[in-house]
Design a protein around this nucleic acid. Sequence first.
DNA 1: AAAACCGATTTGTCATGATAAATACAAGCG
DNA 2: CGCTTGTATTTATCATGACAAATCGGTTTT
Lengths: 255, 255
Amino acid sequence: MADPLPQDPANRTRRSRPFHVADAIKDWVVERGLQPGDRLPGEAELIERFGMSKGTIREAMRLLQAQGLVETKTGPGGGSFVGEVTRERATALLGNYFYFRDVTIDDIYQLRIALEPMLAARLAGHLSEAQLAELEAIMEDYARPAADAEEERRQHVASLRFHARLSDFGDNALLGFFIGFMAQILTDLTVYKRLYTSPNHDLWEKGRRHQTDLIAALRHGDGARAREIMQSHMEMARDLMEAQQAEVLKRFIAE
Amino acid sequence: MADPLPQDPANRTRRSRPFHVADAIKDWVVERGLQPGDRLPGEAELIERFGMSKGTIREAMRLLQAQGLVETKTGPGGGSFVGEVTRERATALLGNYFYFRDVTIDDIYQLRIALEPMLAARLAGHLSEAQLAELEAIMEDYARPAADAEEERRQHVASLRFHARLSDFGDNALLGFFIGFMAQILTDLTVYKRLYTSPNHDLWEKGRRHQTDLIAALRHGDGARAREIMQSHMEMARDLMEAQQAEVLKRFIAE
DNA sequence: AAAACCGATTTGTCATGATAAATACAAGCG
DNA sequence: CGCTTGTATTTATCATGACAAATCGGTTTT
């Protein structure tokens, strides 16, 4: 009676049971080297293995689901499975962190200016023709100058997809994620305080030429030139955002 | 009785109820501009407001807890509260994403070499004497050369804390997080395949002089010099890690 | 042979109640 | 008077069990 749940003497049993179970399952996945798609024990089995109630086990699974580490399916052949954390989910979860913090457009561009040229230089000469074609296909979405502010916004999102896609092509997962994350913020959480009724034709043309030149440099394996072009492109983008008085919204990124 | 909860006809009720509730609470936080520490409705009230059972509501809260968006406390005055997502939690959640992906030491240093010198340059002349003193205090942990491999490892972790702390001092939250995240990976998930019985005395001295010189440059507001030093420091660190054949482990980052 | 149906299986939801933890506040003690 | 110590109360936490929804495989019907 004195000891309800001794377990470990020096243990911080502070964290509640669902957290404890979630950690145990995480460890289990690491130990056995489970891969995405692999089966996890079913609800009933976990209840027995941990000697806890259904509710507790289910709450533990929800904790893991929120992190994207497990997925569950109903029906025969259903159950819990190891889930690969998607880029989208990781982006949303990291976005939560910045929700209460102030991230400015300037903060983002400081990083983009440092990272994107580096990526471009590294990618030069290492892209397949299919990948280059995909980039060119994205550019079709803004092949014509925007007619109004709404279309300009749409084109801007498309051009961000250009950068997000480019970031996927590299072999540096860390760099790719960081760049993609910033593109996502700019796509989802940015609002322009000053909208021009007539979009800037010069800047559209200049930005587009940057990207065509960039693709050419990437195709010919000219890393130095790719870096140079991307640098100019980023600086121009920053100036444009500044002119439009773009701001980062306080919202959560949807998955 | 016939209609338990029609809600929206064209609604994607695919996602289960706890997810739905979690999203609703997120929206609620955004709409009302709630800040960390602010009260959320208690369990009982949520049960009534959403017309759902206790278990469903609790699972929803677990989803939010896993993201670090809410905290719950028992007792009088307890309940659910908006929680600030801590850097530690965001780091752990993002770490999950990279669990199944290959991140190499080289990937990390490519980024560190690009970002840390930039941070150093920006920080020059903008640090308080207290902040500079804190950095100097951290350096005390490796004021003497390591006697064995174990102590060298400990010193390495301490020197990473130097960089993590430095990243907090900037006003760019994005940059600060990225740098801190990489420091965390190097601290928690790195193992050295080749350990020298006698630690390299020259490198220890060189690294230490880098940091003292860096602090001097920061104090005197010499941004160009700070960048230069940090660049050398990072390149040296990369070479050292390479010589030790450091590798990133497949583990989850503990909170 | 295609479509509709059925039944087994597994998670998802609901309802209720007992238990444990944390706090506020008052009473007791030095 | 200040400090500790109970104790009541509020709240989340844990447990149990029944029922609903989804899904898959095989079977029957058309």
